[in-house]
Amino acid sequence: MAPSLCFGPFRLHFMLLVFSILNTSLLASDPPLTLDYYASNCPTLFEIVKKEMECEVLLDPRNAALIVRLHFHDCFVQGCDGSVLLDDTFSLKGEKKASTNINSLDGFRIIDRIKNNLESECPGTVSCADILTIAARDAVILVGGPYWDVPLGRKDSITASPELAETNLPAPNEGLLSIISKFLYQGLSVTDMVALSGAHTIGMARCENVRARIYGDFESTSGINPVSESYLSSLKSTCPIGGEDNNVTAMDYVTPELFDNSYYQLLLKGEGLLNSDQELYSSLMGIETKKLVHKYAEDAIAFFQQFSDSMVKMGNITNQDSFATGEVRKNCRFVNT
């Protein structure tokens, strides 16, 4: 019998979490989405999104990570409904200023440009939530990652929830069991969690989010070797104690602008940049996650396949209220008047 991921006092906790998932409307299962949703009323949709993303990634490869992160932060709050794109107004408090988002999200202007192009071509047709989902797929492809089909037909929410942004999104220094519970709540498995974490093979992290790691257990997990010592020294130079919080460093220093499985190979070496990343391999509770890290580190094809499947599954997290009361926004930053 395979060893259980959870044991002792945690078993009941996870049973209750799974039970609660079965009773929530935010589930990654059987949403009313289809691959040909815009085939007749906006046939140039994919071409328009792709061309804009090609320009943005050519301008700066880091833009790919910005869009993938936006998509993730959208789907974990009210489902994939474009709520993360909403600006604050007199009558609506958006999610952008939540502590989990305020210094972590960018790329909004990229979505604005795509939306403007689509409004010229297919006015009032394509939701911002769908635009973000397609753009995230294209972003991954443009930096060397896998392709997947994107089911479409999402509506844009007319509400946002900064409160859910605070509670639903995993934090950089969060423990493994807590992160697992947040993915389970969304209907995503441990396998989905480990595969989706692989998106950290691209993108940057702020010093505020990595100091606890580089001045904490980085040295003990990475061991004493010249490469790790040199890397740690470089990290401390970029993020000195008491230094600038907004300095950034690559989460995958080996191939920072290429979507590959290098992220998992770094975890095997104990060189994960975020505590939440290294926990996948180093946590005593991570029996299953450790196996998956090994698998994806050794087999890039297996990682790409699971990442594609998990991105579709995450993109299918739906807020049923948005299908009843949602809309297709004319401007992704504001609900229609």
Rank of each mutant, 00 (worst) to 15 (best):
L235E: 04
K269R: 13
E219C: 07
D260F: 02
L268W: 06
C239D: 02
S233Y: 08
I214G: 00
G216R: 04
N261Y: 01
S262A: 10
L274E: 06
Y215F: 02
A250R: 14
G243N: 11
E271N: 13
R213T: 00
L274H: 07
L235Q: 10
E244V: 15
C239M: 01
G216H: 04
G270S: 03
C239H: 03
G243W: 14
I214A: 00
V227A: 14
Y264G: 06
G223M: 10
T238L: 09
S237W: 10
Y215Q: 02
P240Q: 02
L232C: 02
T249I: 09
L266T: 07
F218W: 12
R213Q: 00
R213S: 01
D252V: 02
L266N: 11
S230A: 14
Y231Q: 15
P226H: 07
N225H: 10
N225R: 09
G216K: 05
I214N: 01
V248D: 10
N225T: 08
Y215T: 01
I241C: 12
S220G: 08
L258A: 11
Y231T: 15
L268H: 09
Y253L: 02
Q265E: 13
D252T: 00
L232N: 01
N247M: 11
E257N: 13
L235A: 15
F218H: 04
K236Y: 01
S230F: 10
A250C: 08
D245V: 06
D217P: 07
V254C: 04
G270F: 00
G272T: 06
K269L: 08
N247F: 11
N261P: 04
Y264M: 07
Y263A: 14
I224C: 15
D217V: 06
P256S: 02
E229D: 10
N225K: 07
E257M: 11
T249H: 10
G243S: 12
D277S: 13
P256K: 04
T249N: 06
G272R: 10
A250H: 09
V254R: 08
G243A: 08
D252C: 03
N225Y: 05
S234Q: 15
G243R: 11
Y264L: 05
G270L: 03
D217Y: 05
S234T: 11
D217H: 09
L274G: 05
Y215V: 00
